[in-house]
Nucleic acid binder design. Structure first.
Lengths: 142, 142
DNA sequence: ATTAATGCAAAGCCTTTGCACCGGA
DNA sequence: TCCGGTGCAAAGGCTTTGCATTAAT
């Protein structure tokens, strides 16, 4: 097995096992938020012997290494995606369940404000924006 | 049992049982975020026969009636507090676990931006702000 | 041989639910 | 009597963990 002590694949000091490789590639290829079950299903299509436990353990490792972000978005289960900027956030439509990405510079502003006013140093801001998307509003108006 | 069809206690059309009364009062008196277990402990001190299921069912009702807000704050368990304004948000210190409240007008701005740019109508924005509080930073610098 | 990673199944944690019982109208 | 609310225990959903096995150096 390939041991990455260099920074190739950003898994410094950790072993890039075939299982971890598949998990990471599926997150990369998907390009949207995924929960563990969805990810497990995708991974299983490529190697049916990979267990759900390994998916969770890989996610834990990637999270710790800063390769991915974990979001809860007000739901009981976690969702994952490749590491994004602070400004990258998500809206959840409560009618159709669709998750839409957006960018907002207000986050940067907020980080500065909180530092200045409260002395709080921020590592991560996650928004849980709930409402109704344009499509669902249009449907209501028909 | 008192049936509130008026808007006293804001429990219109619902029965204000002794159990519900205790649950609501404890949320009121506490004045900070509480999870179900903590709330159950407080309620039990006043009436040990009240079950955890009743606490959860009461929380569900209050939530539905808009009396309280439910927050997840990136944690697995939910926390509850009396209904607050959109601007009222929370920061979590990842070192000491302390939750600090703050107000930010940027939320209002964000609601407007999302309406204008994405056509998204927002019911609720919840921030999960993670970082290090001033006290924990000071401790590190000693 | 040593050490880490994996698969499996079991356990954990928080929350919801089915069901019988109770209490007020 | 009727009907909603309650308590209890069980079930649910997601995630973590213990343990034996496997794989790499």
């Amino acid at each position: 097995m390939i041991r990455n002590r260099s920074n190739e694949n950003k898994l410094e000091g950790y072993i890039l096992t075939p299982q971890r490789q598949i998990v990471l590639e599926e997150i990369r290829q998907c390009g949207r938020l995924l929960d563990a079950k969805e990810l497990y299903r995708l991974v299983s299509q490529r190697d049916a012997t990979v267990s759900l436990a390994t998916v969770y353990r890989s996610l834990g490792l990637f999270k710790q290494l800063g390769l991915i972000d974990e979001h809860r978005l007000g739901k009981s289960q976690c969702c994952y995606e490749l590491k994004q900027s602070l400004e990258h956030q998500h809206m959840i439509c409560d009618r159709c369940g669709k998750v839409t990405e957006f960018e907002t510079p207000l986050i940067t502003q907020m980080v500065q404000d909180l530092k200045q006013e409260k002395g709080f140093t921020i590592d991560k801001i996650e928004l849980c924006v709930h409402g109704t998307c344009r499509e669902c509003q249009d449907k209501s108006n028909e």
